[in-house]
């Protein structure tokens, strides 16, 4: 897994590629919680390059969202491949996370 942090019109973007699994989730958690601690108001997560996510990856995002909620932070996903979308849907988390088709949609809403 690779994480690239960039900026889109002043909003932080997490570009993730590769597998988010039990080996890589701890790194994702470190990067994510680092931003949560700094109370980043909106975080856009680009899933286009994600080939696989397991339950540890999903749990890590749940933890991130849980940390953002008290200060009104928003965690927005976009570019989720169909297979990964099904996993979110199966876990009923497609109704918990904000999921958008593109970075523009995620940024504007």
């Amino acid at each position: 897994m690779k994480i690239e942090i960039s900026d889109y019109n002043g909003t932080k973007v997490f570009g993730i590629s590769g597998d988010i699994d039990m080996n890589s989730s701890p790194e994702l958690r470190r990067e994510l919680l680092d931003l949560v601690v700094r109370k980043v108001p909106v975080l856009l997560v680009d899933f286009k390059g994600v080939s696989y996510i397991d339950s540890s990856g999903i749990a890590t995002f749940v933890e991130g969202l849980k940390g953002m909620m008290p200060y009104g932070g928003r965690l927005k996903f976009f570019g989720i491949p169909q297979g990964i979308r099904e996993i979110f849907s199966f876990s009923k988390l497609d109704r918990v996370f904000e999921i958008y088709p593109s970075i523009e949609d995620a940024f504007n809403r």
């Binding site: 039990m22 989730s25 958690r29 749990a59 933890e63 876990s91």
Partner: peptide
Amino acid sequence: TGLNESTIQIMVRMK
């Protein structure tokens, strides 16, 4: 795994 306990607790609830 070397996962953090808080991640593990969320995973357990998911399973």
